[in-house]
């Protein structure tokens, strides 16, 4: 494996490329975990469903999943915008809207998991 660029080090940090992959691994793990959990004990009632996501284990893991998802989506959607939208002003406007949407999703997911 020969990388042109060292993925760790002071000048690179955890760059977007690497974080996109790390967040992917986090989400893949959570996806399998949740599917197994749902197949193992399918929630039969609202109380079951609520208990599932307020668990000491599942709630923080779900939050971690959302954090990974939102960063991953930021890198991915930004890549799409950078590929197809060339005028600087329009690109900036679109990226700002995408960022705002992701911050909105973040606040929303926190309120769903911890609210009420």
């Amino acid at each position: 494996m020969a990388y042109a660029k060292n993925p760790i080090g002071a000048h690179h940090g955890l760059n977007a490329w690497l974080l996109q992959r790390l967040t992917a691994v986090v989400m893949a793990g959570y996806t399998v975990f949740l599917l197994v959990l749902l197949l193992w004990c399918p929630p039969a009632s609202h109380a079951d469903w609520k208990a599932l996501f307020s668990g000491d284990f599942v709630r923080p893991l779900t939050m971690l999943f959302f954090l990974a998802l939102l960063y991953h989506a930021w890198v991915g959607v930004r890549d799409i915008v950078m590929d197809y939208v060339k005028p600087t002003g329009l690109r900036l406007a679109l990226q700002t809207m995408v960022g705002a949407a992701l911050v909105f999703y973040l606040v929303w997911s926190v309120s769903i998991l911890w609210g009420r």
């Binding site: 469903w49 949407a101 999703y105 929303w108």
Partner: peptide, 28 residues
């Protein structure tokens, strides 16, 4: 699929989670 997951899938699933977790009526 990535673009469509960003919109509309994520907000749709968040809305679904909010409604079903929020109240028994929403779940039903």
């Amino acid at each position: 699929s990535g673009a469509l997951l960003f919109v509309p899938v994520i907000p749709a699933l968040l809305y679904l989670m909010q409604s079903t977790l929020g109240s028994e009526a929403g779940w039903l």
